[in-house]
């Protein structure tokens, strides 16, 4: 827990201090404590690095928690929010918002992304009826159904195509703090629900029958978890676009660190989510000279080898 907190503090500092523009740490500190209006270094820190750090923190906590919840509730170690069709639902809603209503500002399409994610998850959960394998199948079917619809809209609408190209990569930049201001209550509710559910996931891990025999109402656990997952993953996707692999890799890393008790896995997962997302964002600023790689791209590049390493190691710690 202490290590995870220290790691989080470190990446937050790195996210504020590092970037394409060289700014001395002391100047970063002055920008935060006594900013001088119009001074370029201070403006970069306050208007660009601070908002993207906050967006990264919010989206990272949401992704780490949602990923842990979904792996716990489905007992599926390769489940992630994308499994429920959340990302495709959000993507379709965003391109439709641009195509039909000409929405182009982040604060405008954030709500469409959220509703799209919720609608997709509602379909998947109601048809999948909480059974892990059926959920995965329905999620894949919904995604397969939605993907060509997205393509169809993109082919018809140039503006939607341009915006989607940028949004779908998954990025922390270009989102004002107003999106976080609008959506943070969803994250708080989702995280509180996840904390309440974490001990129930410990029983659910023993099988539905054992959990029921121990006195748990398994259906209630699944429904509450579904609500929390939609709130968290829907918000994260709205804030930062469909970011792959953070929700998938973080729970594995958390289990490696703290074992099989979901009360610990959930807490560590909530901290490692922003660690991974912000690390990806900071690395993306430093990899290319004078330009940036999107956080979503770097997260995938970082996450895939980690996942392969997890799969190759002999004692995989499953969900």
């Amino acid at each position: 827990m202490v290590t995870a907190l220290a790691a989080l503090l470190l990446v937050v500092l790195a996210s504020l201090a590092l970037g394409v523009r060289d700014i001395a740490p002391a100047e970063v500190w002055r920008a935060l404590t006594s900013p001088v209006a119009g001074f370029m270094d201070h403006d970069v820190v306050l208007d660009q690095r601070l908002p993207r750090t906050i967006v990264g923190l919010a989206a990272g906590v949401a992704l780490g928690t949602a990923g842990t919840l979904i792996q716990g509730v489905t007992r599926n170690p390769i489940a992630d929010p994308g499994l429920l069709g959340l990302n495709s639902g959000a993507s379709l809603a965003v391109v439709c918002a641009v195509w039909l209503f000409g929405v182009t500002s982040p604060i405008g399409y954030v709500w469409f992304a959220f509703l799209g994610a919720a609608a997709a998850a509602a379909i998947v959960f109601s048809v999948g009826r909480g059974q892990p394998v059926r959920l995965a199948l329905v999620g894949a079917a919904v995604t397969a159904l939605i993907t060509p619809l997205i393509t169809l809209v993109l082919l018809r609408d140039q503006q939607a195509f341009n915006l989607y190209r940028f949004w779908s990569v998954g990025s922390l930049t270009g989102r004002g703090l107003d999106t976080v201001t609008a959506l943070w209550p969803f994250i708080v509710v989702g995280v509180v629900l996840a904390a309440v559910l974490s001990h129930r996931l410990n029983m659910l891990a023993l099988g539905d029958d054992v959990a029921t025999a121990l006195g748990q109402r398994v259906g209630t656990t699944r429904t509450l978890a579904a609500i929390a997952i939609v709130l968290l993953a829907g918000t994260a996707t709205s804030l930062a676009g469909p970011i792959a692999l953070v929700g998938l890799v973080v729970p594995h890393a958390a289990r490696r660190l703290v074992g099989t008790d979901y009360r610990w896995i959930m807490g560590i997962g909530a901290l490692l989510g922003p660690v991974m997302l912000l690390s990806a964002d900071v690395l993306g600023r430093l990899i290319l000279p004078r330009s940036e790689l999107e956080a979503g791209v770097v997260a995938a590049l970082l996450g895939a080898p980690v996942l392969i390493a997890v799969a190759r190691s002999r004692n995989v710690v499953g969900a």
């Binding site: 029983m203 023993l206 029958d209 054992v210 074992g259 099989t260």
Partner: peptide
């Protein structure tokens, strides 16, 4: 009740599994 479908999560230790019986 001990059903047939019980699952021991990977990596769980004996004492931890037994202590989950305290849930109710």
């Amino acid at each position: 009740m001990l059903p047939q479908s019980s699952i021991a999560p990977d990596g769980v230790r004996v004492a931890e599994l037994v202590s989950r019986g305290r849930y109710p």
